[in-house]
Write a protein that binds this DNA or RNA. Structure first.
Lengths: 419, 419
DNA sequence: TAAGTTTGTGCGAAGTACAAACATACTGCC
DNA sequence: GGCAGTATGTTTGTACTTCGCACAAACTTA
């Protein structure tokens, strides 16, 4: 039997800029799963089950995962010996009797994680334990328009102050940064409000300085991981995190994994267009979501409507004023919520995630704001039978969510834990 | 050591409509990968490598997958014995010498796949071989507003006519349908232009009638799979398919898998909003992408601009008239391309897929239309260094792509092939 | 003819998950 | 107190899969 080299009915014309699929080199990558990666995956999943469900005995974990008890023992035992996990006190069995279960959880004495939150002009660093506790918090300011060397020195000093308080070398350092980040290569590409950070290959620099694994990702993605770890996204397989503030961004958790997109550039929702030829955005386009659903819009609109102190308006303030009976605030809040809803609507129509966690300014409005957004989304979206859309806020401990998320980034790469 | 049942720092307030995470039942699902599923996955990947790369020898496959040659032999041998694959004639080695390679590919004698394309008022069925050849094509019309029983009888007859020409029982039947589809449950939820289809549990009905596995998905997703299989998406790990016509839809292939979203409702791009409070859409909202980038808009706009025969305008016609020097056509084409570009822009900002295959009307405009769209996207998107965005059309054999895609849907479920 | 190269196939080793059986530790009942 | 019942965690042997090594087969080049 004779084969043609390529089946002849390969259709499709390509527009000029399309790259050929690895020409000559003779093939597209496939990757088979080897025996050892299988173990690695399963180890990661057991750890994730512990994160999602809290302390659990071997037998419970086995039931949860639908596998044999011995399998769990095999996975968990080496981790206990390594000091990563510990066995807790026996929990007496219920009325049915039986041998008491020994719950297992993360060892408080296990190495911690270093976390960095990088916002324009401001650095926060801390240590995070495997069970999510934050310690050795340290803060510093820097000049967003200054010299890179000066910034780096401040960062290193701040981070050193934090890391020196760990009694063992941490697993690694996770960085959450504002702006446009290339998470594959560990480079900050650009930060609108802090030009000093542009082009900084931060991962390489810190990796060398501290001799620890370092990962970086953009701020919304850290919020997402923080939500997944100890926030409203806990245990969820699919949801999105949305951040509104001076800028607007998002991140997705899809089918049990953080979605990054090519070079980690997915989730730049602020510059999706919801109003063709609308207001000018500072990205140069017109009608970006950010132009109608972020703080600058809210301030401008508050001024237009004649609210007091428009330059200091926030969603939290609006909610308070609505409670006090202000009709103008009510209108503005509703308009704001509606504008936020349009972006979420688009996301819902595109990815159908059904669950959204709000952060930043809008989250400051708490459940009231979330409910307003939810009702607008509900009204706009083409719903299917039995479909429910959940809008949650995670406004408490905003910075802490980002820091925990930054730490979580390390886990997902270092421990091969898909968090 | 004593553990709390739940860590106390579980943050986040929930808005009322948020469902609890499996309350009571005590835990979130985890699934560990078992030994046998590993084998299944790898078998699927080898098959996919054959689809993507055409006939390949065992040694080549091993190199492609980065695994041992013996592993490939172990995977491939049973499939040859089963008659799914065949060994081709030996290909003489190149100048370096060596034993001639025996390429392996799909057996033309292997069972085929049944494919159904369901558009408002029109049924197409055919058989597709594992190597993508189409045969036993059969067509029928039905009344979009008629009785369900009548429609079902027509469908069964048409499909029977096709299936009876197969010399062996096919692997299964794949259906690509217009409208809103619940692919998890195999139900057509609603089709705007064909109410007769609404609520039809087509998978169950055909599965019982033909005693074969049946899968269904919506039209754009079938186009996507068709692209992935033998179109411009071949071998790509990440791309999107966009369909424009009377309606507008899309589908995504992300990291080597078809993205479906919850209940298969992802990709309903037509009703993402690009113009808040814009023109009324037949979904009841205002300013959906569909209102500015589908055929109804094009016809309306052509009429407004005074083009001849505005009711029969298509992208293909516009391209032709532009080539003939019509300035009005040029302007309209550009406006159309720009409107299409906005939706792609939003997708790019959201998911960063970098590669888009156009179908339907806009694809009728060929490379010229694709290039117009590409240049608009290029101008609008916030590009990163080294990022290239590819816009391709797959206009040739439109229906064939959908039919191949429908067949491909079967593979992905029946052969556990992640296509 | 000899050396070199590549393909495809046995065979044993290593790693992983699973099933059955067993020791352990508790409850409940007599 | 003794015994049955129940659940947990471990031991042991089995099955499956991939990998490395060795080797025969088939071809090219010198």
């Amino acid at each position: 039997m004779k084969f043609e080299k390529q089946p002849s009915y390969s259709l499709g014309q390509r527009s000029p800029s399309n790259k050929e699929i690895l020409p000559g080199e003779g093939g597209v990558n496939v990757t088979l799963v080897s025996q050892s990666t299988l173990g690695e995956i399963n180890r990661g999943r057991v750890l994730q089950a512990l994160y999602d469900n809290g302390p659990k005995s071997r037998a419970e974990l086995a039931r949860l995962a639908g596998v044999n008890r011995t399998t769990i023992t095999g996975i968990v035992q080496p981790m206990i010996e390594e000091g990563l996990l510990v066995e807790g006190d026996a929990v007496p069995s219920d009325f049915k009797g039986g041998k008491p279960a020994r719950p297992i959880y993360f060892n408080p004495e296990a190495p911690m994680l270093g976390a960095v939150l990088l916002l324009p002009g401001r650095i926060q660093t801390c240590l995070v334990t495997l069970s999510g506790e934050i310690s050795a918090l340290s803060k510093a300011d820097f000049d967003p328009h200054g010299e890179q060397d000066v910034f780096l020195q401040i960062l290193k000093d701040t981070l050193s102050a934090t890391l020196s308080q760990a009694h063992r070398a941490p697993f690694g350092i996770g960085i959450a940064s504002a702006g446009m980040i290339d998470s594959d290569n560990g480079v900050i590409l650009a930060v609108n409000l802090a030009p000093v950070l542009a082009g900084l290959p931060l991962v390489d620099i810190l990796q060398e300085h501290f001799a620890l694994p370092v990962v970086i990702d953009h701020h919304p993605r850290a919020l997402l991981v923080g939500d997944r770890w100890f926030g409203p996204g806990r245990g969820q397989q699919t949801f999105a995190a949305i951040y509104t503030g001076e800028v607007l961004g998002g991140a997705f958790y899809i089918d049990g994994r953080v979605y990054r997109g090519l070079a980690g550039s997915g989730g730049e929702l602020g510059h999706t267009v919801v109003q063709i030829d609308g207001e000018l955005c500072n990205c140069g386009k017109h009608g970006c979501w950010e132009t109608v659903a972020a703080l600058p819009w809210l301030r401008r609109e508050a001024g237009r409507l004649g609210l007091a102190n428009p330059e200091s308006v926030t969603c939290a303030r609006l909610v308070k004023e609505v409670a006090e009976g202000s009709e103008a605030a009510d209108d503005l809040l509703d308009h704001y919520a509606r504008n936020v809803a349009f972006g979420i609507l688009n996301l819902q129509q595109t990815l159908s995630l059904n669950s959204y966690v709000l952060h930043g300014d809008i989250a400051g409005g708490g459940g009231v704001a979330a409910e307003r957004v939810r009702s607008h989304v509900e009204r706009l979206v083409r719903k299917r039978p039995n479909q429910e859309i959940s809008i949650t806020v995670n406004g408490i401990g905003e910075g802490h969510t980002a820091l925990r998320g930054a730490a979580g980034l390390v886990l997902s790469s270092h421990l091969k834990l898909v968090i």
